[in-house]
Amino acid sequence: MAMSPEQPSAPRRSRIALWLVLLLLLALGGYAGWHQWRAREQAVVNSTQQQVDALSERLNAMRTEQRAQARRLQQADSLNRVLRDELDGITQRAALLETSVERLADPDRHGAQALRLDETEMLLTIGSQRLQIAGDLDGARRAYALAAGVLDGIDDPAYLSLRQTLLQERTALDALGADPRVRAIAQLDAYTQTVTAPAGREERARDERAPWWQRAFGNLLQVQPTDRAVAVQAADRAAALAGLQLEISLARAAAERRDTAGYRDALRRADTWLQRLAPDSAARTQQRAQLQALAALPLSLSVPTLGSTLQQLRQLRAR
């Protein structure tokens, strides 16, 4: 008779089922706990991230405010420097005003006398500058005359030598006569009228005095020495005359600006054109001598004593 396997008893099956249920409950509880722990951990992470973001925003705001504060500090520093410079300027002006008041209040220097000395110094400065910079001789004379009139109103005997120096300087200015530049230009204009105008008249007169065959065939054939540099043809003479007039105009312009080198170079070139206009003769020699005399004329003013009165006045006021 065959034997069947032993069947588990009912209590044992119930225990196994109970254990299975317990294991299932434990698994469910562990999963629930793990899910809850993950949710809590995620909430903590989110909260931490929010705090970090908030701190970053606050840090950015603080940096922006710091930069704004730095800009305001720079502006305040710049303003302080400007105010300091203005304060230094005001202090300097106050010191100058105080010095001026002390000078005017000095019993040894009357206020009216100080003003007259200031006016005299200004007029002397204007006169010397007009003569040195602009070459205005008449303007310098008028300025020195006004300075002499102002200086005569000071009755202090300490300035007697200053009046004598001013008188010597005015005498030197009056001794100059006309401005050398004006004199040179006038003589140059007169020379131009005596040289260029007769050249055309001589050419026309020579053409009228020429014989009929020379007037008829002069443009076709003309005999002259080969070593002669004088222009004979009408076109050559016109070109030479135009060159002479141009160089004289250049010399006049150089005289206007007191350019001695340019003035003499232009007259030297004008002498070359003059030799082309006429053959060697006593008249041409005289014209060339006049041209050389014009080139030797001075263009600048020379006053050795210029500025001596101004220098002496400044020395007296310094003492």
Rank of each mutant, 00 (worst) to 15 (best):
V101R: 15
L188Y: 03
G177K: 06
Q311A: 15
A270G: 03
G149H: 05
Y263Q: 00
A76I: 11
I154D: 06
V52W: 11
N80I: 12
G139F: 01
T91V: 12
L87Y: 12
A68S: 14
W273A: 00
S161L: 13
P225Y: 04
L151Q: 07
R170S: 08
N60E: 12
M122T: 06
L115E: 09
E121W: 11
E6C: 02
R201M: 10
R116C: 06
R314S: 09
L313I: 00
V303F: 01
R163D: 00
R252I: 02
T285K: 09
A39Y: 09
P107M: 02
P107E: 06
A296G: 08
Y191F: 14
Y191D: 03
L87F: 15
Q7W: 12
T120C: 09
D259K: 05
L124R: 02
A296Y: 06
L246G: 12
S300G: 13
Q51K: 13
A134M: 04
A148I: 00
D53T: 11
A32V: 06
D174P: 02
R317E: 03
M3W: 15
V44M: 09
T99M: 10
V303D: 02
A95W: 05
D280L: 11
W273E: 01
R93C: 03
Q36C: 01
R84E: 14
L173P: 01
L246P: 04
L96E: 13
E119D: 05
Q245N: 11
D156R: 02
D271Y: 01
E6D: 06
V45G: 01
A2E: 07
L96S: 10
G149Q: 08
G89A: 15
I185W: 07
A68N: 10
V182W: 07
Q92F: 12
P304Y: 02
L25N: 01
E202C: 00
A239S: 10
A94M: 14
E203Q: 12
R252L: 04
L310E: 04
R170W: 08
A229H: 10
L313V: 00
P5K: 05
G218F: 07
L146D: 10
R163M: 00
E86N: 15
Q286F: 13
D227C: 09
L151H: 04
R181M: 05
Q69A: 15
R58E: 04
